[in-house]
Design a protein around this nucleic acid. Structure first.
Lengths: 145, 145
DNA sequence: TTATGTAGGTTGCATATACAACTATAGTGG
DNA sequence: CCACTATAGTTGTATATGCAACCTACATAA
């Protein structure tokens, strides 16, 4: 097949290209809204996991978010340096568990409205049907993992 | 509202968290398939744009893929160093345009089957309905941008 | 013609992401 | 008790991503 035709079929079908583009667009919108609070969207996602499931081991967050352990190791370090998370050794066994600090809780409360603002912008862009479709797909993938 | 409740509502509704997770999962699958060819998925996306629209200015690729110009500046440099792209000055005016090289064309041809393999894995995961839903959403967002 | 603006690009800085290789620790089979 | 394996985590290396600040070349208004 000729090069141009190959490229066209790739561009037409490629789920990955579309997902990455959506990821960049939406992440920028969340990050814009969160910037005044000095926290990134990806960090909010980690904080959310810790709030809901903490104390929790990094490796477990990795499973929840499909994040590689080395990525998490570095991201968590930054958040500890910012004073949002603290870690405690696991009672018996290897590893440690993460908790949110008071400072982290204040940040989370303060930033939540900005998150909501970005979220409603995005829902407007997507429409209710589009938002539902994405949630459905994501939840289905997470099950099959 | 209490912290846990806030986090729960964020986790339940968050489109961005879902999109980022899908982006990581799918990108890993494409990258796994492409690794033997020494090219990354994000690079294939840029190559595809150049094949379809080249000669093309970086800033124009940025508009197509929603990529910041500084990101593109660096990504393109790596691809030039790899000998896949070459740039020529614009006849009149500032900036330059990118073309794919012979080596780039060979790479693209060689890597396309790997791309197709990952693509079909992902479509199986998503189901035809899920894949269509994502394409529909992405195309709609791109229009409204 | 000069001041101003605009568009394309690069660079400094920071974070995000993953793979590979490594360390440390716990559990398990001989 | 020892060798082996599996799990959690860290570190080296590389790419991806974006913002802010800057540079340059062109366009345009005063």
């Amino acid at each position: 097949m000729d090069l141009n035709r190959t490229a066209k079929s790739i561009a037409d079908d490629c789920i990955g290209y579309r997902i990455r583009m959506l990821s960049r667009i939406f992440s920028r919108m969340y990050d814009d809204a969160l910037r005044p609070h000095g926290v990134r969207f990806s960090q909010m996602n980690i904080l959310t996991a810790v709030v809901l499931k903490g104390p929790i081991q990094p490796v477990e967050i990795g499973r929840l978010l499909s994040l590689e352990k080395s990525t998490l190791s570095r991201n968590v370090r930054i958040m500890e340096e910012n004073g949002w998370l603290k870690s405690e050794p696991v009672s018996s066994g290897v590893g440690h568990r993460l908790r949110i600090t008071k400072k982290g809780e204040r940040l989370y409360h303060a930033a939540a409205p900005a998150w909501r603002h970005a979220q409603s912008q995005i829902e407007k862009l997507l429409g209710a049907e589009g938002a539902r479709a994405i949630s459905r797909v994501a939840d289905q993938i997470q099950e099959n993992e």
